[in-house]
Design a protein around this nucleic acid. Structure first.
Length: 133
DNA sequence: GTGATGACGATAT
DNA sequence: TATATCGCCATCA
């Protein structure tokens, strides 16, 4: 990456969000972790909010809260996700066990100067990524 | 430059 | 498990 290191958090966030494959979701924290550089969930939220209510350029709908809970309201986010095949439980939370994005490919991440999702370590998810596609 | 705000996250109770 | 509180950091007023 160029040493300039522009803090275009928004641009980088959009780029990462667009990497989320259809039918999967990621959390704000995940996006922040991939963007790295001290980015955190709030930055991601601001970036997506700045896009607008229906920016078709970025799949903001695939970015949700930490528990898989929809943090937005009035944006029909659950509806959009459901249209992609994502399912929710009775509590309105995304079934993270099945639809949680594992992160970008290592090649892509390094190619664009991003980071991979930090591995949980202990009781993490046993990489039982079901190939939905 | 300072203070307030927010599409969050983690911890404490 | 659910609610309350603190911390985090880039924007905006």
């Amino acid at each position: 990456m160029p040493p300039h290191e522009e803090r275009d958090y928004y641009e980088r966030i959009y780029k990462v969000v667009n990497q989320i494959p259809r039918g999967q979701v990621a959390t704000y924290g995940d996006i922040a972790a991939i963007v790295g550089d001290g980015c955190d969930g709030r930055i991601v939220g601001h970036a997506l909010g700045a896009l607008g209510p229906n920016s078709m350029k970025v799949a903001w709908q695939r970015v949700i809260g930490r528990n898989g809970k929809i943090t937005t309201s009035g944006l029909h986010q659950p509806d959009k996700l459901a249209a992609e095949g994502v399912k929710f439980d009775e509590r309105g939370c995304v079934l993270m066990d099945q639809f949680h994005w594992a992160g970008p490919s290592e090649a892509w991440a390094r190619e664009n100067g991003f980071q991979l999702l930090p591995k949980g370590g202990a009781s993490d998810e046993p990489d039982n990524q079901l190939s939905l596609f």
